[in-house]
């Protein structure tokens, strides 16, 4: 039995095995996931997860370590393809297009769905080259001037421009941790994606840098859809509009952030939120 009987269900999802509490649907969704399962070899890492991600919203994925929230996030731009032995089934649609459809090229997908990682990972190149890398490989700028424009715009949006504008030729690895992470965000923005996935983007940063990134997410929401995995419930509460709670590879509960944190409906969610485990 995959769905414990004691779960009260209120979702109007027309499937037999509903396991998630709360409304997984949104109107005019950007990403629609239906019955997603992920296997690492024998391990069943994600079990039957269905979830929508809306436009211009920040959705936070929370849950204890190893619950599958990062794995789920990496499904959304097919980053799991790089992991040997990983198998994904179910349906994930971006703007109505199945991203796991046969013959679909991951390159444009990833240009549309950017990703920021847990540890800042600037390339061992200059700050300028880091940001310019995406536009360069995709041929987004027709000349040097345009490229410089894109780099400046991206760095501005990432809130880094004022700090680095005089050091564009310096190596990106020389920046502080928080700056590096904002550089990575700028690098992602430079490709002009529609969705940005963030995998615990602040876990390696100090509180001040974290505050800056959180502010940045709020600003970015205007233009992008953001899905963020976080360990910090305060962060989820601060930045997101909706929150999804994962437990042992299952999506337990999803809802408005305020509701999840003040009035969780599922026992597991409540236990987690109140700090009984996690």
């Amino acid at each position: 039995m995959r769905h414990p009987e004691n779960i009260p269900t209120s979702a109007s999802f027309s499937r037999d095995h509903i396991q998630t509490v709360g409304n997984i649907f949104v109107k005019d969704a950007r990403i629609e996931c239906r019955s997603v399962d992920v296997f690492y070899g024998e391990k069943h890492a994600i079990q039957d997860v269905s979830l929508d991600v809306g436009r211009n919203e920040v959705i936070a994925l929370i849950g204890p370590s190893g619950c599958g929230k990062s794995t789920f996030l990496r499904c959304l731009n097919r980053m799991n393809d790089t992991i040997p032995g990983c198998r994904v089934s179910g349906e994930i649609k971006l703007d109505g297009q199945d991203i796991y459809a046969e013959g679909l090229d991951v390159v444009p997908l990833r240009a549309q769905v950017g990703m920021v990682f847990q540890k800042p990972n600037p390339f061992p190149k200059s700050i300028f080259e880091n940001v310019a890398y995406g536009p360069r490989i995709h041929g987004l700028a027709s000349n040097k001037l345009e490229l410089e424009e894109i780099v400046e715009k991206s760095l501005r949006r990432a809130g880094l421009w004022e700090e680095v504008k005089d050091y564009l030729r310096h190596p990106g690895t020389g920046l502080s941790g928080g700056q590096q992470q904002r550089l990575c965000i700028a690098r992602t923005i430079a490709v002009n994606p529609e969705v940005i996935l963030m995998d615990e983007p602040c876990s390696a940063l100090d509180p001040i840098a974290t505050a800056k990134i959180e502010q940045l997410m709020d600003d970015l929401r205007e233009h992008y859809t953001i899905a963020i995995v976080t360990h910090s419930m305060q962060q989820a509460a601060r930045v997101s509009q909706r929150t999804a709670y994962f437990h042992l590879g299952k999506l337990i509960e999803v809802g408005e952030t305020a509701q999840i944190f003040t009035d969780p409906r599922h026992q597991l969610t409540e236990d987690y939120i109140t700090g009984r485990f996690g």
Binding site: D105, V107, A111, Q112, G139, P193, E194
Partner: peptide, 12 residues
């Protein structure tokens, strides 16, 4: 965004 998508596809 749409333009980006087109450019990326064109170079694919």
């Amino acid at each position: 965004g749409i333009r980006t998508h087109e450019i990326v596809k064109a170079g694919l």
